[in-house]
């Protein structure tokens, strides 16, 4: 009995899956950039306890980290889909609400989630910078902005890299969830292939292997960056 391996080759499903994989990586990378930006801003706010904002950030991180990702994705998709189609059709673009739109909402949703985790990573990294370094910089008379750029940011980056690696790994895995609302990424391509060829086993197995490759390769990349930064600090 064959499990449809021949069919996967012959009907060009491999191409669809590879296309899906690039979209998965694109969503993951864009969300990670968004998440890192949110994380840096919110992490600094949380670390410095900037008065009214710190409560907002606390509420954001504990809400997003306590509620399932799938529920957040449903909220963002369903609440925006009607609004966007109405706006788009008012301007005469009825078909806009498919892939391009799904991509943007996917990045917003996954970026919101990874931002909450990145906030905690950045806050932890900032908290582990010895207070003496900052006091010394202040004693020398460096202005606040330069203290951040020269003393805080370089140390923070180095400490935050392993944590950011974890955030990236969960982010790339979370992108699989947006397939349930229709973005044509890796998981969606596998589901469509499984449905139309009736060979779900091979399709989901291929998807699993591709995800594993993505995470393993990026793990190696992060390890490399970590080594690189460590080497430079030792000189």
């Amino acid at each position: 009995m064959d499990f449809g391996l021949m069919q996967v080759w012959q009907d060009g499903w491999i191409k669809a899956i590879l296309l899906g994989a690039t979209i998965t990586i694109a969503v993951g990378a864009a969300s990670m950039v968004a998440g890192a930006l949110i994380g840096t801003i919110c992490g600094v706010v949380k670390w410095a306890r900037i008065f009214p904002l710190t409560f907002v950030v606390d509420a954001y991180t504990s809400l997003v980290r306590g509620v399932p990702e799938l529920l957040i994705i449903y909220l963002l998709f369903f609440s925006s889909v009607e609004f966007v189609t109405r706006v788009a059709s008012a301007f005469g673009y009825a078909g806009v609400a498919d892939n391009g739109y799904a991509f943007i909402i996917a990045v917003v949703a996954i970026g919101t989630i990874s931002g909450a985790y990145a906030t905690e990573v950045i806050r932890g990294a900032l908290a582990s910078i010895p207070a003496g370094h900052i006091e010394a910089a202040r004693a020398v008379g460096l202005p606040g902005r330069r203290i951040f750029r020269r003393i805080i940011a370089p140390q923070m980056l180095r400490i935050a890299i392993p944590g950011m690696n974890n955030v990236w790994q969960t982010t790339i895995k979370d992108t699989a969830l947006v397939s349930v609302v229709g973005l044509q990424e890796l998981m969606r391509a596998a589901t469509v292939g499984a449905g139309s060829t009736r060979h779900p086993f091979i399709f989901f197995l291929i998807a699993a292997v591709v995800y594993l490759l993505i995470t393993l390769v990026s793990q190696t990349g992060f390890d490399w960056v970590e080594r690189l930064l460590k080497l430079r600090s030792r000189k």
Binding site: M1, M187, A190, P200, F201, F204, A208, Y211, L212, T215
Partner: peptide, 23 residues
Amino acid sequence: MTFRGTPLLVQLFLFYYGLGQLP
């Protein structure tokens, strides 16, 4: 490595839809 490197959704679909195909 395998279970931590792949999304839970893929594992779920592989077990629920995929395993039924194996005799």
